[in-house]
Computed example of a mutant assay.
Amino acid sequence: MDSKEHRRHRWCSRRCVIISVAVILGIALLLLILGLTVFRPRHTVTTINSVHLGALRVGLDVPHLSVDLNVTLDLDITATNPNRASFRYDTGNAELFYHGGLVGEAVIPPGRVGAEGSVRTNVSLTVMADRLISDATLYKDVISGSVPFSTNTRLPGTVTILGVFKHHMVAYTMCNITVSVQNRSVENSDCRYKTKF
């Protein structure tokens, strides 16, 4: 009788161990499937909604073929987070280029985008006149009535999945912008977006 009781007890213990292992494996498999599907990190995207000319002052010195140009571009930027976890971003930056040369910079302050949410921010890029005036093509562009610029924005951050798995990513936006000297406005803007993990 004792041996029957002992065998029954061993069989129950084994059964409990098998069930426990099966439950743990099932939970691990479920977390793995969720991590690869529902909670898989997706690209956070920064988009430039609009570009406005905040200020424009042009002065021509015809005898010396030089230009005094002060430009401020106001960028309306949205960071969109498609993840089911929040995206915390560090200090980012926006840069303004004229024919490939850096002529303006601005800081994008750090922040947070909630799960499947978006955040808008405004950034003002002021042209560094001393860098711009040294470019010989500026005079021709101002005379033609259109001055081409390009902007790059960079927003680094982290998405934390299930409070454990951290995914670092950087969202980039590159735009080509044409400023109309006569209308004192942005004539054209063409933007591209990408994210790197």
Rank of each mutant, 00 (worst) to 15 (best):
S13K: 10
L102V: 05
L53Q: 12
V159Y: 04
I108F: 06
S118C: 04
D2E: 12
I108N: 00
Y193Q: 03
S150W: 02
V186I: 07
F39N: 02
V181T: 01
H9F: 13
L30N: 01
V45I: 14
R192L: 08
K194S: 14
L65M: 15
A55E: 15
I19L: 15
G163I: 02
K4H: 09
V123Y: 02
G111V: 02
R15L: 15
L36R: 14
N93M: 08
K194E: 08
A129D: 08
G59A: 14
T153I: 04
L96A: 00
V51E: 04
I143L: 15
L69V: 02
N70A: 15
A94F: 02
V17R: 01
H52T: 14
R57C: 11
M1P: 00
S13H: 09
I161L: 10
S150Q: 07
Y98I: 03
Y139A: 12
V147E: 05
R42Q: 15
V181P: 11
Y89F: 15
I48K: 03
M128N: 14
I133L: 14
E95F: 06
S185G: 11
P110V: 01
K166V: 09
I24W: 09
Y139P: 12
S66P: 06
T37F: 14
T121V: 05
D2M: 06
V164W: 12
V119S: 06
N176L: 11
I133G: 12
D141I: 03
A94C: 01
N81C: 04
F87M: 01
D68E: 13
L56T: 02
I18A: 15
A129H: 10
I161K: 06
I161R: 07
G114E: 08
R15T: 08
D141F: 07
G101A: 15
V186Q: 07
